[in-house]
Each structure stands twice: as C-alpha cells, then as structure tokens.
Design a binder for these strands. Structure first.
Length: 937
RNA sequence: GCUCGAGUGGUGGAAUUGGUAGACACGUUGGACUUAAAAUCCAAUGAACAGCAAUGUUCGUGCGGGUUCAAGUCCCGCCUCGAGUACCA
C-alpha cells in the first residue's frame, strides 16, 4: 500500500466527524484542559497559510493533552460581525448575513481539510441572535452596575441608590464622571426621575455621554483615527470635523488598577504585558489648583513632580481648554484666536508627531502660585493635549525638557530649584540625585520627601492632593453601523431604558439600505420597524411611536470587540438557552489554560475582554477574574511579493536586472505566476488583466525576472498562498508539519515552500517503517536495545519540546528518530506502536491509519501517551571532547563511571594528547566528568 | 526619543545550567537504480590554506572590548533590522 494521503485524510476526517471524536463533556473524572484560539473574522478572501499557524500549534497541544489523559475543550467559532461584510452590502445590496454565511462555509471547509480536533458542537458566531442575546444581556448588566472603590468591585446600581437615599453622594467612593455634582439625601429625594437617571448615568459602568468624534459629513459616518489621512477621509478624501456626539461608553477606567495588577499573575509574553502596562499608563503625582488673578475660576493641573512646584514660571493650557476663551485679554485675543483655529485644523496625530516646532501664545492672564502668591503667566500651546490629565500643565522649565524648550523659545524665565546643578542650558530630570533649594519649606529635601511634604502642604491650604492618574480612557462603545449587535435600549424623554432581559434577543431589523440616513442617522434609522412597544414587549413599526407606550429604539450598534470580549465563556456551555453558560459548566472549565493568538490584539481585545471578565467576576457570574492563564503569540507568516517594473506611460516591462538607474513603476504581480527561480510566466501575465494583453517585455536571457520583497500577506499584494493547494499536493499532515518546521512559533517568518518536500519525504519514510509495497511489515519481534533507545529519546524530547512550545525542534526530533529506525531496519510493533502515538498530535491522519493498520479499532486520539523510560537511555561510555586551551582537537571514548583522576591520567597518556602537547607540560587539566576535558598550557 | 525582541553556512533554522558551533531540512554537487523520467537510495557540502590521500592548520555565531580553563550563551559599549508606543505633564 502506498502512502495515499488524500484518501487517508478524507477518510479520517469523515471518521472524526461521524464519531464526534473530539466532543468534550462538561462532566468528567479527568482533569480539564481548555485550549483556545482567537477566533477568525470570516473574510471573503478565505483562509491563507498564515491563519492556521496558531491553530495547528494549539491543535497539537490539545491532541497531546488528550493523550496525556485530560478532558480537553478545544472549540472554534467566528467573529462574524464586521465592516467588510457591511461594505460589501453597501456596494451590492446583498445582506451581510448572506455573505457572512457563505464565507463561514468556506472557512469551515478549509479548516476541516487541515484536520483540526475542534469540538464543532460548541461553535459560536457573534452575529447569531442566540449568541448576541447574551452580549446584550451583559450590556444590560453593565448598565445596571457601578464601581464601588471601597469594596473595590462592581456592585448592582441598587446598592448605590440605597446610599443616595440615606446619605446623598458625598461620602460615596465611586468611579464616576469628573463633573458629578454633590448632593444630599434630601436633594436626591426631591429630584425628578429624569434628574435621577441623569445622575446615575455618571456612575453606571456603561453610560451615554457626549464624546468627541471624527465626523465626516459627506460619508455620514464617524471615522477612526487611521481612516483619516492629512485631515481628510481616506475613502473619497472628504473633509472631517471634530464633533460631539452622544455615544455609549464603557467605564473601563474604573478597572485601570486591577487590569494593571492582574498582569503580574498572568503567564503571558512579557512584551505583551508591557504594551498593556504602557496603555494603562499609571502615573503617581498630585493634582494642584492654581487660582486665577481677576477670575473666580481656577486651573487644575496634574503633575508627577509636585516637589518642583517652586520652579514654576508659567502655565500652559491646551488650546481647546474651556478657560482659554474666558481668560484671554483683549490685547491677546487676536493672536489666541488665530492659534486656536490653527490648532483645530491639525489632527491629534499630527500634533503629536511634530516634536520639533515649538508654538504657543500668551493669553494675557495670570494665575497665582499657591505658596509664593507670585503671578504666573498663562500660555496656550499645542504640546498640551486636552485629552490627557486636566489639559493643563504647570511648567517647570528647570526640571522638564519640554517646558525648558518652550521657555527658551519664548524668553520666559528658567528659575532653578536644584542644588548644585546648572539648568540654564538643559532641564534636570534626575529624581534620584535631586536636592531641592529656593523652595521655602522644601529646601534641602530629596525628591521623595519633598513630594510627601508638598502634598501635605497643598492639602493643608486646600490647593491640591496626591493623585494617581491613568492614561487609559473610557472606551466608546457606539458604532454608526448596521452589521453589529443592536443595543437593547429604547428612549423615554431622551433618557435610555433597558429592554427587560426576558425579551432578548433584540434582533437586527431589516433595512433597504445599509448607508446612513439622509438626515445623518446611523443605518438602523432606515428601518421601518424599529420602535419598542412596552406593553406588547416587541418591536413594532416606527409609525406607532407615541412616546407613551411605544418608544424609539437606539440606532447605534455595538463595536467589533463586544462579542469577542466574552465568547471564550460561551464555549464552555454553548447552546444553553437559559443563561450565557451554566454555573456547573463555568465551575468545571473555569478558565482557558492555553490561549494562542496574534499580539496585534494587545490593547484591543485582550484588554477589553479582561475588563468584562473582571466585571462579571465581581457580580458573581464567573468563578475567576482572569480568563486566560497562559497566552502565546504566534508570529505572522509573511508573504513574498513579486514585482514587475513598468516604464512610465508605456506598456513595457523591464526585467529586474535591466532596470538599473531607469525610472520604473513597480507593480505587484500574483505570486502564482512566478516560478521558484523568480521567472515570470509571461503568457499567464498577459491573460491576467486586459491592460497587460498587449504588453511588451525587455527580457534577460530570454526570461523575465521579477523583483521580490517580503511583506504582510494580503490579497491586495497578490502574495497570498492558500493552504488548499498544499493540502491537495502534499496533504494536511505535511502542511501541519511544515508550518511547525518553519521556525519558532512566536517568530514572524516569510512563507516559502522550498523546504516542504523535506517534511513530506519524512512522512513517506515513516510510512515505509510499517509498509513495504502493499505488505504490512510490522513484526512482533522483540525490539533491540538500540531501537528502544531511539524511541525513548524521541518520547523524551517530544514531551520536553511541547511543554516549551518548541514545535519546530520536535519535527526534527521525529525525523531523527525515523532516520535512525530506518537505518536499524526496525519493524518491531513494540517500537512502532508508541511511535504512531507520539506523532499523532502533529500528523493525525497518517497516525490514525498506522494505528488502525496495527489492529486497533478505536481512534488513536485517545490512546495513552507512551511512558518515557530513562533506563533505555543510560549510557556507560561517553565520547569526551578533548580540548587544548579551549579548542577541541579530538574525542576519546571513556567509561562514564571513570573517576576524575583516572580520566586525567588516561587522557594525558594518550598519544594524541602527547602529539598536541609537543613535549610541553600542561599547567592545568580541567576535567568535567560526563562533559569535557580541557588541557591548558 | 523610549520600551521590547532579533542578528549563526547559499537558505529555513538547531545548540540543556557557559562545556564538541552549524542538529534537522532545503538547495547544490557526484553516484546507484531506470531505455528514459518520476520515485527511491548512497556520498559530499561553513570559509580559507596545505596535502595524491587519510588528514592537518587557521578563521568563523552583527561590530569593539571584558570575565573565564572554556563564551553563540555572561558583563560593558556600539551598529543594523523588526515590533510596540509617543510633546503623557
């Protein structure tokens, strides 16, 4: 029998599906193990060879854990809401659900072809109403919660209103809006229900607030920062303006400290944790209030260096700061207005990117130093951002380089408050060596004690207090899109109300057009039936809105990260219609033991999902507050793009090595038209696109040679290599092994099929240990010592490598083992049976076939992993490297139980040693038994 | 600028606590089998020099120093590339 991989693979894939080989039970005596992949967005382009890299690694791990006796949960699903399907719907009118369904079908076929051991009975799709019902449910719970800083967790909003009723809000320690007014219990009772609702919104973990967005009137939509290029929209080049819009927000800032602290107990890659730490951006300092001369208002600043407060020589406000208009003097008005206007034209990105030009304008106003009572001039400058801290800084030019640059540029004084340091040329920011001077009661103190002292002094005079500031901002949760989860929200007198959870899911309505309405409302504004009847508890026609029983529904939808923030918990009990997952299932599976995915989700998905997990833990719906114990990032597989070079304005293409100094336009060509020697298939190129049909070529040696470049694999770069062809040509087992063999999992690497024949040959060689022609040649003969040594070496290394996620070295390990067994002409069942099990996680199809050929009638997937026996590896001699002054000259086989002295004696007596020494007497002989001998001198 | 990661043959990459650098594979070259091809198998393969040969010598893990009997691995200083992040007060 020949190794017919296509036949074998189809057969076993069918067997696994029919027998539900990988179905995980929620009850088991076995220990649990949860292996999770980041689920894909099912795009129209299908799966490329980069996608399966992480999936193959996790599948190997999942299969290995099954052999090791674990009850393994290894699910897969689809993050199926998203922009591309909506974009396609806008262009073609095709409903996004239909496109999505078709794409999922294609993904599934491709995934099945690779032989993953997913439990498909637990599949989830975020766009499925049975799934998003629970996303909506979680949203309602967030709305119904506030963050109590005293208990340091989220609590139901009812515990907050109870406090308000008893004592007002003054003593309440809560995460809330900055502008929350103080009220008493009496006042609370006197408020109307609308007023109460409005106040509660300042506390809820999801809340409506006016948020600045990038509004593009021509497209009728809000754009993300990276959809804007040079101040206009990337698509169409339309103008974009900053606009305030009512948006749902997530109060993730309440969890900043816990998100930061939680990182310490996670086994995640250090760089990824560092990204999250930076993103959360904790800084410790003080909030300081400066009174304004001639005004009642004050300026609040946050500073990490309150100890340098006596070095303040001016203040800088962000140009957008609300006080700017008020405090600017008539003489300065013209200049300030012009500057504010100029700043508004620059995007936040631009402002941040431009570090060199120093700009700013004096407002004419003065603040008052809280201690010296000296006047402090107030400037505006675009290096201060409205969105960070309070949007104002106290400038200390002697201690901060940016303030120093600003002061020098505008000829402002640079008073020095550091002892023994010259700050006239450069700011001094070294906290360790700080000794404060010229600072009244802080003189002579170091950074630490001065900071403590000044905060105390500020508190005494009521001008400030110690504060911890986080960069992490609340996340906008509204999207002006169609293809996302609808909010379970309707509006009564402009105040949001939640639909009762028993009426969920609130399903997406049908619309005629997926574009924003003419009046600029989101696409759901096009729906004719999108009003909530509070008596019938169902969606009814908009025409029935009377604002008494029937109310308008929310028109925004949720963002892409809503469903992905909790899907991993749904897998534990997918299909449950009573709850998002039963307590039994949650308590059994608890958390993800291994999560594999890309590091590009570091500040998005991986932060938001931790936030939701902590919230649901606080409210007792989940047993753990971190959902992924261990996380591994798989590196990206890059494509090798191919280029042809066209002469400008001509239909002439120049071969790569003839380009030289000539001006040419490089054009991406599809890599499938290029062979391994970088030669272009000219006929294929001509028929690729009509404009190339008549193309002329400047050839070298009769060939057109393309240029090559490694880039991200993408459809638009025509460098996508699809796994289907490889499965057809070499089989899934080869693909799986090859993707692992390419190099370390976590490293980015270009896709290159050059070496694929190597792993394919390995599988054929493996096959030939079991079969010769049609004949099965496995014998019951006792295995030799040598055979067992080869096998157990491989078992040991396979175990060690997989625990270190070193999949590439395991593949070579298997190759070595099979090479050795072939050379030994080993066909013993005693060796070949365990061999098929250790290879099974990597090449499951061939392993099943061999396992069955050995006479088993159940799947190899649940066979026990062979036990490693160290006794087979015991050696009694060692081939010692003998080196002279650190250079290895020859090796010498010596018994391992030989003593240090005997080794030294034997080596020195050896004639090769004498030849090396040429009569010299060694100064020193280093003998490390079992390792090395080094002779010095 | 800051933070993190990485630089090893023609190529992808191995190398445990510092202990034989280049495992395994690709490619290349030569050979066997074959009418031929495919497939398969065998051998050689870091560079330079010497030798008919077995073999030997020197150099060699981005660069320059250092520690050590011994450094790809540890320390100091640089260079290059990649990723993340950024007037963060």
């Amino acid at each position: 029998m020949k190794y017919n991989f296509n036949e074998i693979e189809a057969k076993w894939q069918e067997y696994w599906a029919k027998n539900q080989t990988f179905k995980a039970e929620n009850h088991s005596d076995k220990p649990k193990f949860y292996v999770l992949d980041m689920f894909p967005y099912p795009s129209g382009a299908g799966l490329h060879v980069g996608h399966p890299l992480g999936y193959i690694a996790s599948d190997i791990y999942a299969r290995y854990k099954r052999h090791k006796g674990f009850n393994v949960l290894h699910p897969m699903g689809y993050d199926s809401f998203g922009l591309p399907a909506e974009q396609y719907a806008i262009q073609t009118g095709q409903h996004p659900a239909i496109t999505t369904e078709a794409n999922i079908k294609r993904y599934r076929e491709q995934l099945d072809q690779i032989g993953f051991s997913f439990d498909w009975s637990r599949e989830v799709r975020t766009s499925d109403p049975d799934f998003y019902r629970w996303t909506q449910w979680i949203f309602i719970q967030l709305f119904d919660s506030w963050y109590n800083k005293e208990s340091d967790k989220a609590e139901p909003i009812s515990s907050l209103t109870q406090k308000f009723e008893k004592e007002g809000n003054e003593a309440v320690q809560a995460a809330c809006d900055e502008n929350t007014p103080v009220f008493t219990a009496e006042q609370w009772h006197a408020f109307t229900s609308e007023e109460k609702e409005e106040l509660l919104l300042k506390y809820r973990l999801t809340y409506l607030a006016d948020t600045e967005v990038n509004w593009c009137p021509a497209l009728g939509t809000v754009l993300a920062n990276d959809e804007i290029v040079n101040g206009v929209s990337e698509r169409g080049g339309h103008p974009v303006e900053r606009k305030k819009m009512k948006q749902w927000n997530m109060r993730i800032s309440a969890y900043a400290e816990r998100l930061l602290q939680g990182l310490d107990k996670l086994d995640w890659p250090e760089p990824l944790k560092e990204i999250q730490r930076n993103w959360i951006g904790k800084s410790i300092g003080a909030q300081v209030t400066f009174d304004l001369k001639d005004y009642d208002e004050t300026i609040s600043v946050f500073t990490t260096r309150p100890d340098t407060i006596f070095g303040v020589s001016f203040m800088t406000l962000a140009p957008e700061h609300e006080l700017v208009e008020k405090i600017t003097t008539p003489a300065q008005k013209e200049a300030v207005d012009a500057y504010v206007k100029a700043t508004a034209k620059r995007s936040e990105r631009e402002r941040m990117a431009d570090v060199k030009t120093i700009t700013g304008v004096f407002t004419g106003a003065y603040a008052e130093h809280p201690f010296t009572k000296e006047p402090v001039p107030v400037w505006i400058g675009d290096y201060v951002l409205a969105g960070y801290g309070t949007g104002a800084v106290m400038a200390v030019p002697c201690g901060d380089q940016r303030d120093h640059d600003f002061a020098r540029h505008f000829n402002l004084p640079v008073p020095n408050i550091f002892e023994g340091v010259d700050t006239s040329e450069e700011a001094f920011a070294d906290k360790e060596n700080t000794v404060i001077t010229n600072s009244m009661f802080l003189n002579g103190m170091d950074h630490k004690s001065a900071t403590k002292r000044v905060i105390k002094a500020l508190e005494e005079i009521g001008k400030g207090y110690g504060k911890i500031n986080y960069r992490l901002r609340d996340a906008v949760f509204s999207r002006q899109r169609y293809w996302g989860e609808p909010f379970p929200v309707y509006y009564v007198n402009g105040m949001p109300r939640m639909i009762d959870e028993k009426h969920l899911p609130l399903q997406l309505p049908e619309v005629e057009k997926y574009l924003p309405t003419e009046s600029g409302e989101p696409p759901l504004g096009n729906a004719a039936e999108w009003a909530w009847d509070t008596t019938k508890n169902e969606v009814v026609s908009n025409s029935l809105v009377d604002n008494e029983q029937v109310f308008p529904l929310e028109l925004n939808t949720m963002p892409g990260w809503a469903g992905s923030s909790w899907y991993f918990n749904r897998y534990m009990d997918a299909g449950n219609s009573e709850t998002f997952a039963s307590q039994e299932a949650l308590n059994y599976w608890k958390d993800v033991d291994l999560y594999i995915g890309g590091s590009e989700h570091a500040t998005g998905h991986l932060l938001y999902s931790r936030f939701w997990q902590k919230f649901m833990f606080d409210r007792n719906w989940l047993p753990v507050d971190e959902y992924a114990r261990k996380l591994i990032n798989q590196g990206m597989i890059l494509g090798t793009s191919a280029f042809v070079y066209r002469l400008p304005e001509q239909n002439v293409f120049v071969s790569k090595n003839l380009v030289a100094e000539r001006e040419v336009q490089p054009i991406h060509v599809d890599v499938s038209m290029v062979n391994a020697s970088d030669e272009l298939d000219i006929e294929a190129f001509r028929s690729w696109r009509p404009e190339f049909a008549e193309a002329d070529f400047e050839l070298e040696d009769g060939k057109y040679v393309v240029g090559r470049e490694v880039e991200k694999m993408s459809k638009s770069k025509y460098n996508v290599v699809n796994p289907d062809d490889i499965c057809r040509q070499y089989g899934a087992d080869t693909l799986r092994l090859y993707e692992m063999f390419l190099g370390p999992l976590e490293q980015a690497k270009p896709w290159n099929t050059a070496g694929i024949s190597g792993v394919h040959n390995f599988l054929k060689k493996l096959w030939r240990l079991y079969f010769k022609g049609d004949e099965m040649i496995v014998t019951d003969e006792k295995a030799s010592k040598e055979n067992l040594k080869s096998l157990h070496k491989a078992i040991k290394k396979a175990e060690d490598d997989i625990e270190n996620f070193s999949f590439n070295t395991t593949v070579s390990n298997f190759m070595i083992c099979v090479n050795e067994l072939s050379a030994q002409d080993c066909h013993s069942r005693e060796v070949l049976e365990p061999l098929s099990v250790i290879i099974a996680p990597y090449a499951p199809h061939i392993a099943e076939e061999l396992w069955a050929a050995l006479g088993h009638d159940t799947s190899v997937a649940h066979a026990a992993f062979p036990e490693f026996k160290a006794e087979y590896l015991v050696e009694d001699t060692k081939n010692y490297p003998i080196s002279f002054n650190g250079k290895m000259r020859f090796t010498l086989e010596l018994p391992l139980d030989m003593s240090r002295e005997e080794i030294e004696k034997t080596v020195l007596e050896n004639e090769k040693t004498q030849a090396q020494l040429e009569g010299r007497t060694p100064e020193k002989v280093i003998v490390v038994p079992g390792k090395i001998v080094n002779i010095v001198g």
